[in-house]
């Protein structure tokens, strides 16, 4: 697990203060609980299944709503299960789509088994290889790491990250190394049609 990683609940809450009218697609498990804990919104679509599909769901919304900012917030294993999506997304080049991977290097929801992003696999590098040029990792101090790590200079770190995810031209992907922790339970509604209808209504297409 990342030593001294970011507090995922605090990071998500801080970032979502900058969302304005952005649509959020939350990957299954802890990323959904994090987004819900930061404040429920009809513009949040929470996945309770479909592992590997969060980024593509986000791409679909982004293509159908090109003037709406879309942020996918998901986990490292969910992102890896759908890793090919990054090639698909790079080819479509949606300017309004960004992906935040909360990387605790573990399968946090199923018993904290070790994941694949700790020792050997660099998801941001995979994103760059797929063709997403703006792909970078941030560590516990929100200091960008490695190649492609440029957007966080010159501003307080969270605001700079919010700018990269909500304002800068996409597609973009940020891997945030987070501690292996859970916040208090914060479960969103689990009725698919309810989530669907309120999301569509909030986008004006209900």
């Amino acid at each position: 697990m990342p030593r001294g990683g970011l507090d995922r609940r605090a990071l998500v809450a801080e970032l979502l203060r900058h969302r304005e009218d952005a649509a959020i697609i939350a990957g299954l498990g802890s990323p959904s609980w994090d987004c819900h804990a930061a404040g429920d919104s009809p513009l949040n679509f929470y996945l309770w299944g479909g592992m590997g599909g969060a980024a593509m769901l986000g791409l679909g919304v982004a293509l159908a709503q090109p003037r709406r900012r879309v942020l996918v917030i998901t986990g490292d294993a969910e992102a890896l299960m759908g890793i090919g999506s990054l090639a698909t997304i790079a080819a479509q080049a949606p300017r309004n789509l960004a992906i935040l991977v909360l990387d605790n290097e573990a399968f946090g929801e199923t018993g904290r088994q070790a994941g694949l992003s700790g020792e050997s696999t660099d998801i941001a590098a995979m994103a760059r290889g797929a063709g997403i040029a703006s792909a970078f990792t941030v560590d516990s101090e929100l200091l960008p790491q490695g190649e492609g790590a440029r957007p966080l200079r010159g501003r307080p770190a969270v605001e700079a990250l919010a700018h990269a995810l909500f304002e800068a031209a996409g597609p973009a992907l940020c891997v945030a190394k987070v501690s292996l922790t859970d916040g208090p339970d914060s479960f969103p509604p689990r009725e698919g049609p309810l989530l669907r209808d309120r999301f569509r209504a909030a986008l004006g297409c209900g």
Binding site: G52, G53, M56, G60, V61, A64, G82, G204
Partner: peptide, 15 residues
């Protein structure tokens, strides 16, 4: 499988 998730996303976005 990417296409299934994509189709769900476009519909959530109205298309």
């Amino acid at each position: 499988e990417e296409g299934i998730a994509l189709a769900c996303g476009t519909w959530l976005g109205g298309e």
